[in-house]
Computed example of a mutant assay.
Amino acid sequence: MNQQINIEDTTSASPLVDFWNDVLAPKFIQYRHILVGGLSRHSEVVFPMLAVEKGQRILDVGCGFGDTAIELANATGPQGDVLGVDCCAAFLDHARNVADGEGVPNVRFLCRDVERGLEEPPFDMVFARFGTMFFANPVAGLRAMRICLKPGGRLAHIVWRQRADNPWLIEARDIVRRYLPPPGEDAATCGPGPFSMADETVTRAQMAAAGFEDIAFRRVDAKVMVGRDVADAIAFQLAIGPAGETFREAGRLAEEQRPEIEAALAGMFEAVIAREGGLWMDSSSWLITARNPT
């Protein structure tokens, strides 16, 4: 059993945190095979760029099922320490089980909303993969991450680039919206959304306002797995992401239109050429790095 688990995990409630725990967490758990394995090629490209050093203390924000935190723990070695934080307690149950099963003693997990701060000694590095886009207040969230760093400490976070560069999410959304209206302004939400940090100029300004220096953007193009097969890909899109949000908010109308929507999505996914143990589609992200001033 991992001896570094903190049994006092808590996170202050907020509408966004409640939405993640009550609505999205069960869906993410159901499609964990896509959300972990499907993003593996982005991690394979990015991790060698992080230049993790042995013995470093690292914070993984929005660590989800713990795969990146465990990889960071292996990279920093037994002399180092990795803390994974996420606002969804159910994700962390899976993360701990994996860490225990793989025998990774230098990683621990806490249920926290990092935007509200952490009471932890400072870190050498803060990392986040596809989590910062959902900060309710991006500047405040980024500032909270910077405060977690030692003077001169490094931040590295991965966010999706523009919609046009990510057909794996947008093509399905566009198909669904042929049949259903877009979500209204009062729709329940998980935060600003997956493309909220896609614009380099805006995000660079947010990071500068949060106090970071040496801000750099590097484009990463990699395919993502969208499902084991066509049926899996359709179910995933109707549960999570922009297409899933549209379908969920449409309620009874969505169920009435389900046969037509599923048939249209099947036509899209059947045309996907890359089939290597699943369906793989094009995607593009930013690796954004920066430094806390000394």
Rank of each mutant, 00 (worst) to 15 (best):
residue 139 V to M: 10
residue 41 R to L: 13
residue 254 A to G: 05
residue 1 M to H: 12
residue 284 S to C: 09
residue 251 G to F: 13
residue 37 G to L: 08
residue 263 A to V: 02
residue 97 N to K: 14
residue 66 G to P: 12
residue 39 L to I: 02
residue 88 C to I: 06
residue 237 Q to S: 10
residue 288 I to K: 13
residue 130 F to W: 14
residue 197 M to C: 10
residue 73 A to T: 06
residue 267 G to R: 11
residue 19 F to Q: 10
residue 181 P to T: 08
residue 87 C to Q: 09
residue 58 I to L: 02
residue 183 P to C: 03
residue 137 N to M: 11
residue 292 N to D: 02
residue 148 C to D: 10
residue 175 I to M: 07
residue 269 F to M: 00
residue 194 P to D: 12
residue 12 S to Q: 08
residue 83 L to W: 13
residue 8 E to P: 15
residue 136 A to M: 11
residue 209 A to S: 12
residue 60 D to F: 09
residue 186 D to L: 15
residue 26 P to A: 10
residue 137 N to F: 02
residue 41 R to T: 04
residue 149 L to C: 06
residue 6 N to T: 15
residue 265 L to S: 04
residue 44 E to D: 09
residue 2 N to D: 14
residue 257 Q to N: 14
residue 249 E to F: 02
residue 35 L to M: 06
residue 63 C to S: 04
residue 28 F to R: 06
residue 108 R to G: 00
residue 10 T to K: 14
residue 238 L to E: 02
residue 217 F to N: 09
residue 11 T to M: 07
residue 225 M to E: 10
residue 221 D to R: 03
residue 45 V to Y: 09
residue 92 L to N: 01
residue 207 M to S: 12
residue 180 L to C: 00
residue 140 A to Y: 04
residue 281 M to C: 12
residue 196 S to R: 05
residue 264 A to F: 04
residue 114 V to Q: 15
residue 161 R to S: 05
residue 264 A to R: 06
residue 169 L to E: 09
residue 99 A to Q: 03
residue 229 D to S: 08
residue 146 R to N: 04
residue 12 S to N: 01
residue 186 D to P: 11
residue 204 R to K: 02
residue 258 R to K: 04
residue 82 V to E: 08
residue 134 F to L: 00
residue 39 L to Y: 04
residue 192 P to K: 07
residue 15 P to H: 07
residue 22 D to V: 11
residue 126 V to W: 08
residue 270 E to N: 08
residue 85 V to I: 05
residue 287 L to V: 11
residue 275 R to P: 04
residue 22 D to L: 15
residue 246 T to W: 05
residue 24 L to H: 13
residue 128 A to V: 11
residue 155 L to I: 11
residue 180 L to T: 02
residue 81 D to G: 00
residue 245 E to C: 12
residue 4 Q to N: 04
residue 203 T to P: 05
residue 113 D to I: 15
residue 257 Q to H: 05
residue 148 C to P: 15
residue 49 M to L: 14
residue 247 F to R: 00
